[in-house]
Amino acid sequence: MSAPAPLVDQPWTEPGKGAGLLDVVRRRYLLKLLVRKELRVRYRGSVLGLAWSYVKPGVQYVVYFLALGIFLNLRGSIEDYPVYLFSGLVVVNFFTEAFGNATRAVVWNAPLVKKIFLPRELFPVASVWVAGVHFVPQVVVLLIGAVISGWRPQVLPLVGAVLATLIIAALATGLGLLFGSLNVVFRDMENFVDLANMVVVWLSPVLYRWDQVASAVPAWVATVYQLNPITVAVELYHYAFWWPGTVNTPATALPPDLLVNSLVAVVVAAVVLVAGQLVFRRVEGRFAIDL
């Protein structure tokens, strides 16, 4: 082992005070190990393993399709309803899994948090990343379904899909930092987040069309509804994977102002991310004490 570096070269530092999310970028290798750890731990002793992450959305999809597509006959009023439904569901599933797990990440990793210092932002970010690992194959399934029903790739819609994915990732990370840090102090947060996650799918045009909301509520409610970043991401996915494959659906089937709403969603997601980071850093001092 080499001798320690000379003292004069080394800057004074304050232990336990890092650069937050920037440290996560700097320590990608550790992030990778934490993601791998979470996947390993999640599926230990399970025969189906990673396949479970497809069984759940699969069953959920079949149930929604039967109940809404067939029984309530939304299939009749929305062209290519199977693709419409699935393109919205993958977005919402990515968000709810990322948000739910990120909220629990610090508490789950209590043994590490209490005994050794590492940038704690790594835990929620690793959870979002794990949700991403589950999300990518679902997008592949979506692509196959879309191609079968006549979809062909186009540049602008695909740019929209990438943007939507980034919006969801940033939003889930920001909210995960916010609620995950508060969850250390008040364990009520994880139950609250579960509740919120249950509602998310109904507050965005995943199962039905946006204009069914617009025609039923006051104009300002419809505007707020449209500005929900998750609604924007869902509509961008419709624009990317559903609409190009339809024949009889006019462009007006997509909400107006999608471009403007997308820009607003980017700003909202960025603000949430910054706010989440700030709150996380304030509460972080209590992690090792309260856990």
């Binding site: 003292l7 304050e14 232990p15 336990g16 590490l112 005994k115 050794i116 210092f117 090792a288």
Partner: peptide, 27 residues
């Protein structure tokens, strides 16, 4: 000193890389 906790008041400063064996099996 290792940064796991922050002091209520006062300050801790270091120069150099640190490894803490605070408890058996930490990390």
């Amino acid at each position: 000193i290792s940064g796991v906790m922050h002091p209520t008041s006062g300050s801790v400063r270091l120069r150099g890389r640190i490894a803490g064996l605070i408890e058996v099996g930490a990390g």
